[in-house]
C-alpha cells in the first residue's frame, strides 16, 4: 500500500534530475565547466555557502535554545517569525533585505552616511541573503531535537552544581550534535541553491555576487547546454555534501 505513493514521491524527485542528465552534452562538459565564469561562480558559491552556514550555526543555535527552553508566551509568536523566510517567496525576502539594508533602507541609510558602508551589490550581501533564507532550517531542526530531548539532563547537571554556560557547553551542545549536523547540512544546501533573494538584494556580477544558481540562470539565456552543465555541477556538489554529512548526522553519530 505504501509503495505506490512512495514510488510516486521518489519519481517526482528523481525523474527531473534524470531528464537533466539525459540532456547534458557530455562531450562539451569539461570545456563548459572549466570556463572562468563557471569556476568563479563555483568558488563564490562554496565560499558564501560555507560562510552562511557558519553564521547560521553561530546565531541559530542560541536562538533555537531560547525558543525551545523559554516558557514565555511571546515565544510562540517569535517562532512563527523565525519561520518567515521559509514561506516568503525569496524575491520578497530580497526586497525586504533591500528595504532594511539598501541605500534607502533605514539601517542601510545609517551605515552609508555614518560609515560609508553600502551592502547591496557586494559579496557580503550574498552571505546575508543566504543566511536569511537558510537560518530557519537550522533553527527548526535544532528546536525539534531540543524539545524531544527535554531538559532533564540539564536540570540534573545544574543540581550537581554546573553553571549555565558549563551546562550549555557540556550537556546541551553534545546532545544536540546530531540535529546540529543535519540542520547545518540543510542550511548549507539551502544557501547553495539560493537564487531569488540573492539576485534581488545583491545583484549579479561575475566573481562578486554571481553564484552558481545565478550563473545557471544567466547561461540559460544564451547557451542552454552550458546552463545544464552548471546545473549538473550544482547537483554534484549538493549530493556530495548530503552524502558525506547527512547519514552520520541523521543516525545520531556525530
Amino acid at each position: 500500500m505504501l509503495w505506490i505513493p512512495a514510488g510516486l514521491a521518489l519519481a517526482l524527485v528523481v525523474l527531473p534530475v534524470v531528464g537533466l542528465l539525459a540532456r547534458t552534452d557530455y562531450a562539451r562538459l569539461p570545456e563548459l565547466l572549466t570556463s572562468s565564469a563557471s569556476l568563479n561562480a563555483l568558488q563564490l558559491s562554496l565560499v558564501t555557502a560555507v560562510l552562511s552556514t557558519v553564521f547560521c550555526v553561530l546565531l541559530g543555535v542560541p536562538l533555537a535554545v531560547v525558543l525551545a527552553r523559554s516558557r514565555s508566551r511571546g515565544v510562540r509568536v517569535l517562532r512563527a517569525v523565525v519561520l518567515l523566510p521559509l514561506v516568503l517567496p525569496p524575491v520578497v525576502g530580497g526586497l525586504a533585505l533591500l528595504f532594511l539594508l539598501g541605500r534607502n533602507g533605514f539601517l542601510g541609510y545609517l551605515l552609508d552616511v555614518t560609515a560609508g558602508i553600502r551592502i547591496p551589490f557586494t559579496t557580503a550581501a550574498v552571505v546575508i541573503a543566504q543566511t536569511f533564507v537558510a537560518m530557519p532550517f537550522l533553527v527548526v531542526s535544532l528546536e525539534g531535537a531540543l524539545r524531544g530531548a527535554g531538559d532533564r539532563y540539564e536540570l540534573v547537571a545544574s543540581t550537581l552544581g554546573a553553571r549555565p554556560w558549563t551546562v550549555f557547553r557540556r550537556v546541551t551542545v553534545p546532545l544536540l550534535l546530531p540535529a546540529l549536523g543535519s540542520g547545518a547540512v540543510l542550511s548549507f544546501a539551502r544557501a547553495l541553491g539560493e537564487f531569488g533573494a540573492t539576485i534581488t538584494f545583491a545583484g549579479s556580477l561575475e566573481g562578486v555576487t554571481r553564484t552558481l544558481p545565478l550563473e545557471v540562470y544567466n547561461q540559460a539565456e544564451a547557451d542552454v547546454d552550458s546552463a545544464v552543465a552548471l546545473a549538473l555541477l550544482l547537483i554534484v556538489v549538493a549530493v556530495l555534501v548530503i552524502a558525506v554529512a547527512r547519514p552520520r548526522a541523521v543516525e545520531g553519530r556525530p
Binding site: 547591496p120 551589490f121 539576485i199 545583491a202 545583484g203 549579479s204 556580477l205 555576487t209 544567466n218
Partner: peptide, 14 residues
C-alpha cells in the same frame, strides 16, 4: 557596472 541583471525590468527596479 555594480550588477549585470537578467532582464531589463530588474535594472529598472534597482
Amino acid at each position: 557596472p555594480a550588477s549585470e541583471e537578467q532582464d531589463v525590468k530588474a535594472v529598472l527596479t534597482k
